[in-house]
Design a protein around this nucleic acid. Structure first.
Lengths: 229, 229
DNA sequence: ACCCAAGTGGAACGGTCTACCCACTTTGTC
DNA sequence: GACAAAGTGGGTAGACCGTTCCACTTGGGT
């Protein structure tokens, strides 16, 4: 939309085709910078910050990625690969219940390791095709994981795929609130949630201890300061 | 800090003392407007929006509440009263476990009903004395609620007050993600969490059904659109 | 080595937000 | 009802953000 002529902006842009060598290098620097900033501060970072961090002009960033959505799509394509791969790994586990719990823990760990990815999993960007395609793929896999775990008798019958979405939203909230000051808090949440999903006899990983109260308090203050200014 | 002389800006300002009649009226209109906007859109609303909504000039808002923190303090003082009151009500319940579950549900319902309050409970504003005092008061009450429920045998021994904080952060995430398109999603989260907190034999309220998938999807898209700009 | 197209960064612009100052209006007291 | 003080809103300045334009630089085919 910004350039003179580019018939299919989103799909053509992804693999970085036919770019001059230096342009390709700049594109990579932008992606690396965005990856870094998104991971640390979530998807809200200003485009100007990304350009500054990448050491390129704002115009270059705009030219390469016309919108924030496009940038997100390119940055998180590989994370979504890992997300989809995690479902395959869970299905490969001979123990269906362990596959289920391992998948939940893996995905939530990814969220904790990357605030931007936490946001991506809790949102849906219809125009970000690379991301959404992997999400749909992972969703199918997750349905199979659920069915297997329920057949094994360890996952409650009333668990639905929506519960994963809710967990991802909840975990995104915890990660956003505690990243920096009490970064392991999410483990406690996930441990509790697994307890809720399990049938009475199911084996559970040990529940992570709660974070230290002072760390949690400092995290809350940090978050408050962030929302104030 | 902005006015000529006001020795104790935060404490004196709260009850709205010695203001001229029209000034008092404007102060109330500001509070009402802020309450409305915070409830719908969280604590991030711009001060200019609040002033516009209240029908007063920006300067008037600044003069009455020198910072966003002060405004938050004044707006949520009564909500924090209700929060503290909920602990008393829980302690008054003859059934300790029902008192515990009722408290959790009440507080999370308050979060769902007011996005700003959801944020307030997941953050800590050291300078907002009215809010923080009530938080500390409620915290003491909650410790008693926990102890009673654990003695009754229905609340797990490894539940700690930190778990409430984590739940509030998680619920804030769910509320922020689903408000508008799937506003009852939080009930499902809370139901699952109560399952996790309960010992095997404890009676539990029925688990709320998950929201419709399309509603959840629309909520995720809405949220994405919001974070994109 | 040359040269054009592809690519670049800085500057300019319109938008929003906060903070502050100042000329005007209202209140309530005498 | 007049007047000082208290209160008001609009206007301005400064900091960002995202977008677009434009004169300059650079790559790489010939």
């Amino acid at each position: 939309m910004s350039c003179s002529a580019d018939p299919d902006p989103l799909d053509d842009r992804q693999p970085g085709p036919g770019l001059r060598a230096d342009a390709e290098r700049n594109r990579d620097r932008i992606l690396a910078a965005a990856r870094r900033l998104f991971a640390g501060q979530g998807l809200g970072v200003s485009m100007a910050c990304v350009a500054r961090e990448a050491g390129v002009g704002k115009a270059t960033l705009s030219r390469r990625f016309a919108s924030r959505e496009e940038l997100i799509n390119a940055v998180f394509a590989d994370r979504m690969d890992a997300y989809a791969a995690a479902t395959a790994q869970a299905l490969a586990d001979p123990d269906p219940w362990r596959g289920f719990t391992g998948f939940i823990e893996t995905v939530c760990a990814m969220q904790a390791a990357d605030r931007g990815f936490a946001d991506v999993l809790a949102r849906s960007f219809p125009a970000a095709k690379a991301v959404e395609a992997r999400r749909a793929e992972a969703y199918e896999g997750f349905l199979a994981i659920i069915a297997r775990a329920q057949e094994s008798g360890h996952l409650r019958a009333d668990f639905t795929a929506d519960d994963l979405v809710i967990l991802l939203m909840a975990n995104a909230g915890v990660v956003a609130a505690t990243a920096g000051a009490a970064p392991d808090t999410w483990r406690r949440l996930v441990g509790q949630m697994l307890r809720a999903y399990a049938t009475p006899g199911a084996p559970l990983p040990p529940l992570a201890p709660p974070p230290s109260q002072t760390a949690l308090y400092r995290a809350m203050v940090r978050l408050a300061r962030h929302t104030l200014g």
